[in-house]
Amino acid sequence: MLKIFYSFWYKFKEYIVLIILILASLFALSNNNNASVKNVRTIAFSSFALFSSLISDVTSSTLIKNENGKLRRLNAELMLQVNLLRKYGIENQELKRLLALKDTTSFPLISASVVSKSLNTASNTFTLNSGKIDGVKPGMPVINDLGFIGIVYSVSDNYSMIRTLRNVDLRIRVKDERSRVDAILKWDGDDLILTNIPKTSDIKIGDRIVSSELSTIVPLPIPIGYITSINNMSTDIFNRVKIKSFSNLTSVENLFIIKMVKSVQMNKLELNFFEKENSAN
């Protein structure tokens, strides 16, 4: 019997072992959810994970290095795109506001864009892409949706140069919108200053300043800025009042020139500031 069994084993041992092992595998397959199998698997998995984590750390650091390079490049590209979109957004908002202003104002407006800016602290000037052909003349006020920007100073066929609020050569007559106190606005190289305001005048911080109808340059009330500080100088009879303009001159790009044709008689009578200055030069 044993001999038969031995010869059977000798003949078919590969098959017998195969069948046993297949049965063992199928048994393992059917017992996958068994708690003890799970435990064994957890132990084996966690103990081997140490070796594999060492290697994967090395490989992942190489991968991360490559990925970092790619991400940095992508980041730079996205930053450029975001900047471009932000610029478009700002331009869009500005143009929308300008369109709204154009619809509401009763004065004829000439639209213009800033071609170049001379951001000199003492004599700030802008060059606009509208000139004589568009009907621009020296002395015309320039505004944007927030308020006054400057005065056209010289004009060529297609371009014009304006003196902005931050120009020491520009002085305009303004008034306090609330108390109607008149003053002269000028740029002292650091701040916009209101001069000729007696200490007894009714002015307060936060008051809106607009151009005065009495002005020979801007004879209509255009918002300019608001009072930020009032300095009472004991030795002087006038206050030194600082104002902040509504418009941000460093970021402004699209403007309107108010096509104002002033009365020649009035000009002659009041000796227009601009013409007077030109003739002096």
């Binding site: 590969e14 092992l21 063992a24 048994f27 393992a28 397959l29 059917s30 996958n32 698997r41 084996a44």
Partner: peptide, 25 residues
């Protein structure tokens, strides 16, 4: 080869956390 295959499969299943028995078989 048969026995080694079984052992390799068992270790593979245990270590990789796969379905126990599939690689064994």
């Amino acid at each position: 080869g048969t026995v080694l295959g079984f052992v390799y499969g068992l270790l593979f299943d245990l270590i990789t956390g796969g379905l126990l028995g599939s690689a064994m078989l």
